[in-house]
Design a protein around this nucleic acid. Sequence first.
DNA 1: GACAACTGTAACGTGATCGGTTACATTTGC
DNA 2: GCAAATGTAACCGATCACGTTACAGTTGTC
Lengths: 143, 143
Amino acid sequence: MRSNGRFAVAVHVLAVLAYQDGDAVSSQRLSASVNTNPVIIRRLLLALKRARLVETRKGPRAGSRLSRSAARISLAEVYRAVRCAEVFGLPCRKPNGECPVGRRIQAVLKPVLASACTALERELAQWSLAEVVETVRKPARRG
Amino acid sequence: MRSNGRFAVAVHVLAVLAYQDGDAVSSQRLSASVNTNPVIIRRLLLALKRARLVETRKGPRAGSRLSRSAARISLAEVYRAVRCAEVFGLPCRKPNGECPVGRRIQAVLKPVLASACTALERELAQWSLAEVVETVRKPARRG
DNA sequence: GACAACTGTAACGTGATCGGTTACATTTGC
DNA sequence: GCAAATGTAACCGATCACGTTACAGTTGTC
């Protein structure tokens, strides 16, 4: 599995927006904080817009802002907004139906993988964006 | 994030070994059940061997078998054996240290991501290989 | 001891994906 | 009208996983 920084960047971007509390931030400034290209940020913002986490205005002095309070945005929502696929997938080729294990393994595995994904999101749901920003502001909280 | 069937294939392979209960199975036969190439299976078996989940003998009539009872192998162990990287990674480029958020976001995020990974493994730890094989044998258990 | 079966491993191709970059049409505040 | 910003397409390059072929080494069987 390729290690993926997409989720971390998404939280980073949202944290900057929360930090500015209401002021619109351009993709240019966001990309400067993340240290990447504005287009990368805009592509990410598209996903966050689709999930109704941010709003974007065009034109000069415009940019993006949170569409609701940071306290009401959980990291699970962020994760769902930007993940491209589930953590676990089934292999593309179907197993051999002649084999008693191959014939049934995927059906057996499916609920197991689903429960693992659910556990992951349940954990992320414990954290709000506001808590992240608060910890950024003053180190060493919530041990 | 690229959806990855490696974990599912690993469980599949181990399930076949558990199904044979003691008989050594060649990578040829395993690959026939998974419907892939023997070399893919052998590479996977290397990871499972490193994790002390299987043992392998060379020569004719040889192959691999479980190194302990299927009841004592949890899916969390399988996951740890074959994952290449953590579910979440940090982006390769470091954020901008001039930005108050960029300067601290990664340190704040790190324990959050770690707790999510832990939750994932804790869920997988609930399942043993023996339960998987049992469900393969007789459908519709453990609703 | 020869043979055949099997593993371990290297080498290489390939297709998919992702981050990055440039470019440009479009929107909009001033 | 102008300048600033987004939305989006096109393309490149690196990386990675899977697949395939090939071959040396190991070992049970005759």
